[in-house]
Simulated scan of single mutants.
Amino acid sequence: MLVWAAAGCSSVVEGAAEPASGQEGLFDPCKDIPDSVLEEVGLDPATEEVDIAGVEQPGWKICSWTEPWYYFSIYSTESSVATTKQNSNYVGFKPLTIGQREGVEFHLQVDADLARCFVALPAAHGAIWLSVDTKLALEPKESTCELTERYANLLDRHLPR
């Protein structure tokens, strides 16, 4: 029995990895935004992190970059902005215009201090979310919502419609 268990642990699976369910056809911020654009808006492409700790999230394409006191992330999802507004985990919805798009700013219900702020913009495939999230135990150097909105404006022309 012991030999069988050990042999099972060393098996090799051949072939290419399949994307998580719901990711097919989504905008991929890590692949679809050139490094030159990231540098143009003040982000360091070398700090890029794909997904959440490298783990794909079903229904999402996620890319983050590290800055001294925060993380900036872009999320691509099939879910619409309207669906986001129906999620009780999110509150503080405030309409805003980014380029020619009507989007919303919001935050997590449990985040009264706005350590993390989101902007969601409509896209043909669903929505693009942008977020600034303060690093644990650090004080924000400016409003996470203002910074998220600034990134949204700077990156808007590089995001899908």
Rank of each mutant, 00 (worst) to 15 (best):
L2V: 11
A5H: 12
C9R: 13
S11H: 03
G15C: 10
G15L: 06
A16N: 12
A16K: 12
A16V: 11
A17Q: 14
A17L: 15
G22T: 02
Q23G: 13
E24N: 09
D32F: 02
D32G: 07
V37T: 15
V41W: 04
V41K: 10
L43I: 04
P45W: 01
E49W: 02
E49L: 06
D51E: 10
D51H: 06
I52A: 09
V55N: 14
Q57G: 01
G59C: 07
W60M: 08
K61P: 10
K61R: 15
C63Q: 09
E67N: 05
P68W: 01
W69D: 15
W69P: 00
T77C: 07
S80G: 06
T84E: 05
T84C: 02
K85N: 07
Q86H: 03
S88K: 10
F93H: 10
L96H: 03
L96D: 09
T97H: 01
T97C: 04
G99W: 06
F106T: 02
F106N: 05
H107V: 02
Q109T: 13
A115F: 03
A115H: 04
A120E: 13
L121V: 01
A123F: 00
A123V: 01
A124G: 12
G126Q: 10
A127T: 00
A127K: 11
I128R: 02
D133Y: 03
L138D: 09
E139F: 03
P140H: 05
K141D: 13
E142S: 14
C145Q: 09
T148C: 02
E149C: 02
Y151N: 07
L155P: 13
D156R: 06
